[in-house]
């Protein structure tokens, strides 16, 4: 088992290595001067006219005059030393920008993960356990609607109704910037209320549909009939036999969601002016801030690889069939 986990981890490390390499090659092989992508088109032409020497200096800094393999080694070294360059949007180190935005994203994504994971599971179990019942008939269409309508549609409606028209919540931003201490925490919570509500809604809807389908499928399994035939109460059949099995794919999905904690919700962060990772990535792509976009892309990819690895490990502990298959592998 331990051997298999180590093997899986090594594969994950190799995957990350491949992502890092692709990210390096993408910039080098994009049409045009590589410097355009590294300093931004506007600044590139500005420097080309006003100070070609500085441009030369930047090229030297990134080692663009060196052979490709040398550049690659330098690039790998910069990743290991967490030196991801300077963002040309605000001329600050990319890492500082990203860390600051990650903090704001986590304020939204961690509660979304916990509340959405819990509500989706509970509601999904209730609907899947009694399919066709009143709860199922009301909840399923609502959840399908929430799950399929684009995020920005409901986001804008919420913004118009609860922020513009009624003024119950701020239109955008994360804080008023003046308060301190507990007042600041409450202020952030007030600013986060609308986007958080929406994120929880979307996450709950997705989780609800998954859990409902798991429970409906498991309750028609033969071993559930066996459980009833032993004279078990409905509650024991549900908790001991149905939920335990329905949780296996659900836990896999939660682990994958854990992997996307840091990538943030691009649309909602943009709509609500929330300076999180999604918003940062969006602005970086829009302003062709390649170093920032590159790090956002890498973080997102690494998190997904980590989430997949985590789900593999967790499932092998929950499901003995998976554990045995892994041991035999």
């Amino acid at each position: 088992m331990l051997k298999r986990i180590i093997k899986k981890s090594l594969i994950a490390v190799l995957t990350v290595f491949a992502i890092v390499t692709v990210s390096f090659l993408m910039v080098r092989f994009m049409p045009g001067d590589t410097l355009i992508h590294l300093v931004g088109a506007d600044r590139y032409y500005e420097l080309l006219e006003d100070s070609p020497k500085q441009l030369e200096h930047i090229a030297e800094l990134y080692g663009l005059n060196d052979p490709l393999w040398k550049q690659y080694l330098k690039y790998l070294k910069s990743i290991v030393t967490l030196d991801f360059g300077i963002a040309y949007s605000n001329h600050l180190p990319v890492l500082d920008n990203v860390l600051s935005c990650a903090r704001w994203t986590l304020i939204l994504s961690v509660p979304t993960f916990i509340i959405g994971g819990f509500l989706g599971a509970v509601a999904g179990v209730l609907a899947g356990w009694k399919p066709g019942g009143a709860f199922d008939r009301i909840m399923t269409p609502v959840m399908i609607f929430v799950n399929t309508v684009p995020t920005y549609c409901i986001g804008i409606i919420f913004l118009v109704v609860f922020a513009f028209k009624n003024g119950w919540f701020p239109v955008n931003g994360m804080t008023n910037g003046t308060s301190t201490g507990i007042a600041r925490i409450l202020d952030i919570m007030w600013h986060a209320a609308l986007p958080l509500c929406l994120l929880v809604m979307f996450r709950t809807a997705g989780n609800f549909l998954l859990m409902k389908s798991n429970v409906s499928q498991v309750r028609s399994e033969e071993y559930v009939t066996t459980a009833y035939s032993k004279g078990l109460t409905e509650k024991k059949v549900l908790f001991r036999h149905v939920m335990k099995n329905a949780m296996v794919p659900y836990v896999t999905s939660l682990c994958m969601q854990l992997g996307s904690l840091l990538s943030g919700s691009m649309m909602l962060e943009v709509i609500f002016g929330w300076k999180g990772m999604g918003n940062l990535f969006y602005s970086a792509v829009n302003s062709r801030d390649y170093p920032t976009a590159q790090l956002c892309f890498m973080i997102s990819a690494v998190c997904i690889v980590a989430g997949t690895l985590l789900s593999d490990i967790v499932i092998s502990f929950i499901d003995p069939r998976v554990k045995d298959a892994i041991d035999e592998y």
Binding site: E222, Y223, T225, A227, S229, K244, V248, D319, P320, R321
Partner: peptide
């Protein structure tokens, strides 16, 4: 009264 289902793979809970 006890019911003994067919002993196929799905007759027992795989996680217990």
């Amino acid at each position: 009264i006890s019911y003994v289902p067919q002993g196929g793979g799905a007759s027992m809970n795989p996680l217990l």
